[in-house]
Computed example of a mutant assay.
Amino acid sequence: MVTPREELIRRILNWSRARDDVRAVVLFGSLAQPDARVDDMSDVDIELTFAVVTPELLAGSWWRDFGVVWTAYSLDPLPVWSLVYEGGLTVDLSVVDPSRIAGMVSAGKLSRVWERGYRVLLDRDGSTRGLPAPSGAMPEPGRLTHDEFRRLVDGFWVEVLRVPKYIARGELWAVKSRDWTAKTRLLRMLEWHAIVLGGHRVDGHGLGRGMPGWLPADLWHAVHGVFGRFDAADALHAYQASVEVFARAAGDVAAALGFSYPTDRDRLLRDFAEDLIRKVDADAVTAGTGAS
């Protein structure tokens, strides 16, 4: 029995075959990765190579030919259309010209997303024949430099120190906004922890995929406390947990790589963070309101 996802891919491929300007169609993402977890909710990732990417093509809604579109959103700079078709099937369609595949062939190196796996569905010009085979593995993460480490640490502190200020003011949406920005730094430090101390490879897309498999059990348990509800008291607890998890992960990474952490400056920032917590108005923490 053909699934709705398979039927949609078939429509895209038939549409592409009927158009001379479509030169190649490549499936990538989880559906093209042999060991990926795939279920009924898995997205479809397809790259369409056009002979020429024209303004008319970019401005058009030709993707409606594939089915009933519930909603559509365009992303730059590739460009990519993120589409939700009838039934909730999500499709990311990338539109490129032949130079993208040619560049990978010339460099002998696949893009990060293709390295995990890709499947050529259409190739009119033989342009994909020189592509390397996908390794199926996460790309090599490289080595974390001291400058990159410091930038990550400093970026975390700049953002996270704003959180208790907004808690005290009762600005809960601002709390969530600043907290999320800090969380992106926290996640990156956890990823480096997994890479440096555990020898793991992670996807690095900022989604924390597979985290239970690459974080030590105690850190995985601690991470459960870093997200709070939309109230001041819970946000404060999550803030404290985030600081603790970041300090633990950063300390482990620094020790493994021979970096200095915490420095006197880091200790000063940590002390300041604790002072901010003590200064948060008790009523604001309890009721979610505070000074304006």
Rank of each mutant, 00 (worst) to 15 (best):
V2Q: 15
V2P: 15
T3E: 09
T3G: 13
T3C: 09
R11A: 15
W15A: 04
R19K: 13
R19A: 06
R23K: 14
R23I: 02
A24H: 03
V25N: 02
V26R: 06
F28Y: 14
D35T: 15
M41R: 14
V44I: 15
L48Y: 00
F50N: 01
E56I: 05
A72N: 02
L78V: 14
V80S: 11
W81T: 04
E86V: 01
E86P: 02
G88E: 05
T90N: 12
V91H: 03
D92I: 05
V96K: 11
D97A: 14
P98A: 13
P98F: 12
I101P: 02
I101H: 01
M104D: 08
V105K: 10
G108Y: 09
G108F: 11
G108T: 06
K109R: 15
E115G: 08
E115N: 14
E115I: 05
R116E: 13
G117I: 10
G117N: 07
G117S: 02
R124F: 08
G130S: 06
L131Q: 10
P134A: 15
G136L: 04
A137H: 15
G142F: 07
H146V: 12
H146N: 13
R150K: 07
R151T: 13
V153L: 03
G155P: 03
F156K: 03
L161N: 07
L161P: 03
R162T: 09
P164Q: 07
P164E: 04
K165S: 13
I167W: 04
I167M: 04
G170K: 10
L172Q: 08
W173H: 13
V175A: 08
K176N: 09
K176L: 14
S177N: 11
S177A: 15
D179C: 02
K183F: 14
T184F: 04
L186P: 06
L186R: 06
L186Y: 09
R188N: 09
W192L: 05
W192C: 01
A194P: 03
I195C: 01
I195R: 11
H205W: 12
G206H: 02
G208E: 06
G208V: 03
R209V: 11
G210Q: 02
G210K: 01
M211P: 00
A217Q: 07
W220Q: 11
H221I: 06
V223A: 14
G225K: 01
V226H: 05
F227N: 09
Y239A: 08
Y239V: 00
A241T: 13
V243R: 11
F246K: 10
A254Q: 06
A256P: 01
L257S: 00
D264P: 05
R265C: 05
R265V: 03
D266K: 08
L269E: 10
R270G: 00
I277P: 01
I277V: 15
R278Q: 13
D281A: 12
A284T: 10
T286F: 12
A291R: 15
